[in-house]
């Protein structure tokens, strides 16, 4: 069986930072802070976060901070949004430097985005999605400020997005999708509300994501993709049904998506690698207790030694 090319993946992640002027890099600029979170968390799982200078990262992250409102943008000068605020808080948590934040102010920003029905808008422009519920809840929990929102309403909204197949969508009536399921189950796990979930029914839906090649897809009729190794697997762990899938086959599928020459992991075997899939591949292996990796917390998406504050 292939092995995880840890050193090459570390090199690959460190090299991304230097390729800032590629078209691909330019077109990802608006979500650079998400990319930073994926890359840094991967380094940490591989025990190599020491390869970056924490001060440099932290000072850049804080340049994405909007002092006037308390949210973070995806890059310097970009508008604040919950998606980026969570990544910023997660990065600071990785370096154990939450102290540089005005936690009160950030949590007021996050809490201010909760709507009357318990849902969360991603930013002041009002788009609603269960992804944003997860961002808000995860972020507030890291900051120990969950008391700033109406948790009961937040939970009820998430539950209202549950479908008859046991899965969850973006909004009530939205199609079940493994990414959305991770967000909903993660938020319910953090708030201690997993009793709202029919574990057998959802577990059934999730483990039917495993394709013949061992990889997981995100919805019925789709091809397997490495990123679902994270979304599906973490959800299965949170609802205690991970033994319903074949982990050896999944491990082989992920390892088969590595670029063994230059490092990095792609969505499917022999496709182009990117930092997003590198993170999800390594994180998926960590969830399956692949030797030599730090374990990752399935709800907070941070290494356990970080999440265990």
């Amino acid at each position: 069986m292939d092995e995880l090319e840890s050193d090459k993946h570390v090199k690959y992640i460190l090299s991304i930072e230097k390729k800032k002027d590629d078209v691909e890099a330019l077109l990802m600029e608006h979500l650079r802070i998400n990319g930073a979170y994926w890359g840094l968390t991967t380094l940490d799982i591989l025990h190599k976060i020491s390869a970056v200078d924490p001060e440099e990262v932290i000072s850049w992250v804080m340049k994405c901070y909007h002092e006037d409102c308390g949210g973070f943008g995806g890059n310097i000068g970009h508008d604040p949004h919950l998606l980026y605020t969570l990544s910023a808080v997660q990065i600071l948590a990785l370096f154990d430097r939450i102290d540089v934040l005005d936690a009160e102010k950030v949590s007021i920003y996050v809490a201010g985005l909760q709507n009357e029905d318990g849902s969360f808008s991603g930013d002041m422009w009002g788009e609603i999605d269960t992804r944003f519920s997860y961002c808000a809840i995860c972020c507030l929990s890291i900051l120990h400020c969950l008391n700033k929102i109406n948790v009961e309403k937040a939970v009820n909204y998430i539950v209202s997005c549950k479908n008859l197949d046991g899965g969850f969508g973006c909004t009530p009536g939205g199609e079940s999708h493994a990414g959305q399921i991770f967000c909903c189950i993660g938020a319910l796990a953090i708030t201690g509300s997993l009793h709202h979930v029919d574990r057998d029914l959802l577990g059934w839906w999730l483990c039917e994501r495993q394709c013949k090649n061992g990889g997981l897809n995100g919805r019925p009729e789709k091809d397997a993709d490495v990123c679902y190794s994270w979304w599906v697997l973490s959800s299965l762990i949170m609802i205690d049904r991970v033994h319903w899938i074949d982990k050896d086959k999944l491990t082989r599928f992920i390892l088969n998506c590595q670029d063994k020459e230059n490092g990095g992991i792609s969505d499917k075997p022999n496709y182009a690698v990117d930092v997003f899939h590198t993170y999800f591949g390594v994180a998926g292996l960590s969830l399956m207790e692949y030797p030599g990796l730090k374990s990752i917390d399935p709800a907070y998406a941070l290494p356990v030694d970080v999440a265990d504050w």
Binding site: L27, E29, H30, G74
Partner: peptide, 14 residues
């Protein structure tokens, strides 16, 4: 047109 998921630019139009 060049970078279609550039959130801040959509926001400015809003």
């Amino acid at each position: 047109i060049l970078s279609y998921d550039f959130k801040s630019a959509w926001n400015s139009r809003k």
